[in-house]
Design a binder for these strands. Structure first.
Length: 424
RNA sequence: GUGGCCGUAGCUCAUCAGGUAGAGCACCGGAUUGUGGCUCCGGAGGUAGUGGGUUCAAGACCCAUCGGCCACCCCA
């Protein structure tokens, strides 16, 4: 059946996997709460223009990865490819940033990018994100990195991740570096690989990432980005690095780390892992002091980052263990044979659910012999089966059968059931 | 968008000089009357991703298409 198929790259998260998601999400929620961040819930659809202006129209995301469409009023909309732009929009629109005060927010939800799916990459994927508005000191970066580190530790993946960090200076220093780099590379343009040739005119900074040996050779004599970073940014970065050292957070300065979104300035960082194949970034972010003023007559410093939930789930799962954390184990399975018994069974089930809320009570749905119902009870992993048939109806008793322990089954008067169960 | 590998029962896979498909697990039922787990017996379940082509004959060969995986690209 062709129609019973999900869209490419948009996968179902099956019941057996949901436990892992809930675990990752609850760790995130808990830690963000403890650091004093508030949740904000944002729409999945925004004006396409929002992303063009914030992420940058020359970027891959905007150029070829957005789900863009016209709605019935001919408005050009798109499915959000990331969370920061929408968060900035919301913060400006709702007047959440006041001069001189700091706003700390987090959000969670699906993002959409039209890319070829592969390990760790889907067209619909889930992110958790953090944004802090209104403070330009390195303390913000530091707090976010500390909070990341705490998340890794809570998920027991701290040994599997590394922090890569860099500064890309302010807008002016980036501009002058780009002109310098471009004019240098222009001289060798014939020897560059095809991708890099193309990027020479679109996004020269990206050439630094080229995997081509010849291109890398050319780059070895290219002007150094570090020399172009403005003094303030450099100082900012050094201060951050010193603080990280002081706090014992290992990091690696990666001069080639240039993020693919235009809104960043100064600090950029990525937490990566080698466990996930080619898509090793589990969290990426940085500072974007200039973005708010693009949508507002005010300006505000800002830092943020986003976590890939699927990738974190894969990572925590690659550690084995906690799979099926919240899988379908039950406490009680109720078996009924006959119409009157069924009514009695429902009564008992509801009664237990009211009186012992922490228990998971399954009731056999549909008919079946006692034997087949007991088989199901066994498969449900229930500890106890309650059997109710004509005999039980007649005697106003229920039969308790212990499925995991070597105990005699017993008969309990219906009115005594709860107190008997509470003793177990 | 590009490249490599792959697509047979719910799942994992076999079948392969091309002659209209099998196993294990799972599922359902039974082994004397209302009792699970172990064992034994039986049953159901596949137009071999889809569409063309080659052939007397194709799951097996060719082409296309869709999908999956992995990589490039880029990123979470």
């Amino acid at each position: 059946m062709k129609t019973a198929r999900s869209i490419r790259g948009m996968t179902d998260i099956l019941p057996e996997e949901v436990g892992c998601y809930q675990l990752v999400e609850s760790v995130f929620r808990d830690i963000l709460h403890r650091y004093g961040y508030d949740e904000i819930r944002l729409p999945m659809v925004e004006y396409a223009e929002l992303f063009k202006r914030s992420i940058g129209s020359e970027t891959d995301i905007v150029e070829k990865e957005m789900y863009t469409f016209l709605d019935r009023s001919d408005e050009l909309l798109c499915l959000r490819p990331e969370g920061t732009a929408g968060c900035v929009r919301a913060v400006v629109q709702n007047g959440l940033i006041n001069q001189g005060s700091i706003k700390k927010l987090w959000y969670m939800g699906p993002m959409f990018r039209y890319e070829r799916p592969q390990r760790g990459r889907q067209r619909q994927f889930n992110q958790m994100g953090v944004e802090v508005f209104g403070e330009e000191s390195t303390e913000v970066e530091l707090e976010i990195l500390l909070l990341c580190d705490r998340i890794w530790r809570n998920l027991n993946i701290e040994d599997l991740v590394q922090l890569e960090i860099n500064t890309i200076g302010d807008l002016d220093s980036r501009k002058s570096y780009v002109t310098s780099l471009t004019s240098y590379l222009q001289k060798y343009s014939d020897d560059l690989d095809d991708d890099s040739k193309r990027r020479l005119s679109t996004n020269p900074l990206r050439i630094l990432d080229s995997k081509d040996d010849k291109t890398q050779k050319i780059l070895s004599n290219a002007p150094n980005f570090t020399d172009f970073v403005d003094h303030k940014s450099r100082g900012h970065f050094e201060k951050l690095c010193n603080s990280l050292e002081g706090l014992g957070i290992p990091y690696n300065v990666n001069p080639a780390l240039v993020r693919g979104l235009d809104y960043y300035n100064r600090t950029v960082f990525e937490w990566t892992t080698k466990e996930l194949g080619a898509q090793g970034t589990i969290c990426g972010g940085g500072r974007y002091d200039g973005l708010v003023e693009k949508f507002s007559n005010k300006s505000s410093a800002a830092v943020g980052c986003a976590f890939g939930i699927e990738r974190l789930v894969m990572l925590t799962r690659s550690l084995s263990s906690q799979e099926n954390q919240l899988s379908s184990v039950a406490d009680i399975y109720i078996i009924a044979v006959g119409e009157e018994a069924r009514m009695m069974a429902i009564r008992c089930a509801e009664n237990i659910r009211s009186e012992i809320p922490s228990w998971r009570v399954l009731q056999n749905l549909g008919a079946g012999s006692i034997k087949s119902q007991l088989k199901r009870a066994n498969k449900s992993d229930s500890k106890i089966a309650i059997i109710i048939g004509p005999e039980e109806v007649a005697s106003k008793c229920v039969t308790l059968k212990f499925l995991r322990d070597d105990l005699e089954q017993e008969s309990v008067v219906e009115s005594q059931l709860i107190s008997r169960l509470k003793d177990i």
